[in-house]
Amino acid sequence: MKLHIWGQGIEPSVISPECIASAWLICQVLDSTEFQIVTSNNTNISDIGKLPVLITKDDGKLNGYEDIANYLLKGDNLKGKIIKAEDQVLDFTLMHFLQTRFDALNKYNLYGDTKNYEIYTRKLYPKFLPFPMIYNQPSKLHTEALEQAQLFGLGSKSLGFLGFLGLAKTSDEIIPDTEYINSSQDNDEEEEDYDHDDGKEQKPISSLHEAQLIQKSKKKALLKETRTSIKCMNLLGKYLGQLTILSEKNEFKFGTSERITPSELLFLAYMYALTYDGLPNRFLFQYLSTQKKHILDSVKVPIQDFQKNMEFSTFTQPSSSESPSLWNEILYQFNKLTY
């Protein structure tokens, strides 16, 4: 069996907690000789354009964590900690809740937060994808992620003057440095030229004035982002509050019990991603460690367990036809390559 996921080397990536949960699950349920985890990062392998995908021994294809969990937990004598949920309805509705609400939080944390995006997430793609595919995909995923976070109120969707026509873009568009009038890239020679022209080609705005304006707008953007970050923490607090109500009725255990259901495993994977220690700005982690310490403490042990039990020997690189290269993409578009 082959499990295709987002990741690099022996690490499933936090950009897809579903992939992390699938990798944890398969390592718990099967012997390491029975399967391979391929960090292929190629969404074309999936029927529905989304990883994870499990390819079974008889060439069946299972798309998405939910189907993979159902398939792997079919038998009765399972090894490992994970069991099928007794309350099936709660299990799949909870999974839907996590895949929408927690996913939006994760997307905002990785893509919406400027520091995390620029220092961590954006730099992942060159590791995931071969040249030249690194250019198109990431910016598309970035826009999509921001839109998805916006659906749950994270990030502002300013429609602007022409918003009702669908013409206006989101207000968060970044203006590249070269677009400024007194751009820092301007070399000194040019400036000297202007001086010789005796003021005939004067710039419409002085560099000091522009620098002030830019600083002002940057300050504004920073304030806006802080506000959204607080909203994000609030939402996380609200969602965890709902889960706490469930846990008071013993219907949800934050992964502390002996046996863990597929939806709880997915919850742990999301918590792992939200508090991931490789991120430069761990505002959600800080929020949790001050406001929801008990939850953070209770998920820590099972997460470490699952990470430890991951069979690193099963991780393999994608084969040449599985890799998301330009050549494969072209073949795929022309139906010459099917997965």
């Binding site: 799949f92 509705t93 909870l94 839907h96 809740f97 709902q242 889960l243 109500i245 219907e251």
Partner: peptide, 16 residues
């Protein structure tokens, strides 16, 4: 507001 299982089920029906 208080019925969390119902809330999740409601989200499932409304969205899926």
């Amino acid at each position: 507001d208080k019925d969390i299982k119902g809330l999740y089920l409601n989200q499932f029906l409304d969205e899926r």
